[in-house]
């Protein structure tokens, strides 16, 4: 096979007019992706984007690759069939918090536990956009929307906790205000063998504007984003003055000056037990507190499509290739002359 052709952002942009609201966070995610693709050294024809329904789900139309805009919530299931049938492809799944965690929650957790080779991007804007502003499964308690005039009474999902609980082997979080960080997370997720999920905090400037301002604005990030770096003590703050300790299995934010640097938790994304990663995912239960971003977990487990292919190969080894004539005679037969 010939070398992968050199491509540019333009090669990865389709001829379709992008139709998100002006100012939507989705634009910056799309740009980050179109700029990243040439760096991944993959072929456009071997790349497939599958989506469900929602604003985020329009994503495949704008990528000049293969793509399917399917139905609400079902993209992980459709992508699973495609990835099982065609392990040679790079299959991406794109969806929002309603698509992936509400109507499609079941498919998402099962895709994660199977560890099928999918790169799943969950654009979390904590609101329903395309249906014009109802609360979502990640909206905070008390959220006033068209369908919750007296405030939401639903406990929200923490997508990172859900993914870790679903046995995901790669779990990361990023946000739409930092292209470099997004690209790094997307690249890591893409290179991972198995199901990889990246939660992207994404601003919906029409129905939930500024939901992440307190943590993702440039001047807030140092103090409010806890960057997880493998092998490094977990520290944040303008001068790294705060950190994370694990006390009796629970992650706690501490002042470094008080506890000393040696007791800070050293992040290990490859830890086989997901408990510490889960505990870290619980550090922030709103978007106004210091919130961890980066790779929570990245472990190796056998990829599903590989297991499927190896069972087929093993069956062919023991039984030989399929012989229809023999199959029809595999039950007792008799001859009439």
């Amino acid at each position: 096979m010939s070398a992968v052709p050199v491509t540019t952002k333009k090669d990865w942009s389709s001829d379709q007019e992008v139709r998100w609201c002006p100012g939507c966070g989705d634009y910056s995610i799309l740009t980050a992706m179109q700029l990243l693709m040439p760096e991944l050294e993959v072929r456009r024809e071997d790349t497939v984007f599958i989506s469900g329904i929602g604003c985020a789900a329009r994503f495949p139309y704008y990528m000049n690759s293969y793509g399917m805009h399917s139905i609400h919530g079902r993209s992980p299931a459709i992508a699973t069939g495609l990835a099982m049938a065609r392990p040679d492809l790079d299959v991406w799944v794109v969806g929002g918090d309603g698509d992936m965690l509400s109507i499609g929650g079941n498919h998402l957790i099962h895709a994660l536990r199977r560890n099928i080779n999918l790169t799943i991007l969950l654009f979390n804007n904590q609101i329903y956009g395309l249906t014009k502003g109802q609360y979502s499964p990640t909206s905070e308690v008390g959220k006033v929307t068209k369908s919750t005039p007296m405030g939401s009474i639903d406990q929200p999902f923490n997508p990172i906790s859900v993914a870790l609980g679903a046995e995901a082997t790669f779990v990361a979080r990023t946000h739409d205000m930092d292209r470099g960080h997004m690209q790094e997370m997307f690249r890591r997720a893409h290179d991972h063998q198995g199901s990889a999920i990246v939660e992207v905090f994404q601003n919906c400037n029409v129905f939930n504007d500024g939901a992440f301002n307190a943590i993702t604005k440039k001047d807030a990030r140092d103090a409010m984003l806890i960057n997880l770096t493998h092998g490094e003590p977990v520290r944040f703050g303008v001068d790294g003055e705060r950190g994370v300790m694990i006390v009796d299995g629970t992650a706690k934010i501490v002042d470094v000056a008080e506890v000393g640097i040696d007791v800070l938790h050293v992040h290990d994304e490859t830890a086989p037990d997901p408990s510490v990663a889960f505990s870290i995912s619980r550090l922030a239960d709103d978007r106004e507190s210091p919130t961890p971003v980066g790779v929570f977990r990245s472990v190796q487990r056998r990829e599903y499509g590989e297991s499927v292919s190896s069972q087929i190969a093993a069956a062919q080894d023991t039984k030989g290739p399929g012989d229809l004539h023999g199959l029809l005679r595999s039950l007792p037969t008799w001859d009439v002359s």
């Binding site: 599958i50 399917s70 079902r74 992980p76 299931a77 459709i78 992508a79 699973t80 069939g81 495609l82 990835a83 099982m84 049938a85 079941n106 498919h107 099962h110 499927v308 069972q311 087929i312 093993a314 069956a315 062919q316 023991t318 039984k319 030989g320 290739p321 399929g322 199959l327």
Partner: peptide, 24 residues
């Protein structure tokens, strides 16, 4: 009959079952 190259997938529900088939 995987030796015929048949892939079988016991999905998480009926919707995923047809979804995976359509994806294939």
């Amino acid at each position: 009959h995987k030796n015929f190259g048949v892939r079988t997938f016991q999905a998480e529900d009926e919707i995923a079952a047809i979804g995976s088939a359509l994806g294939a």
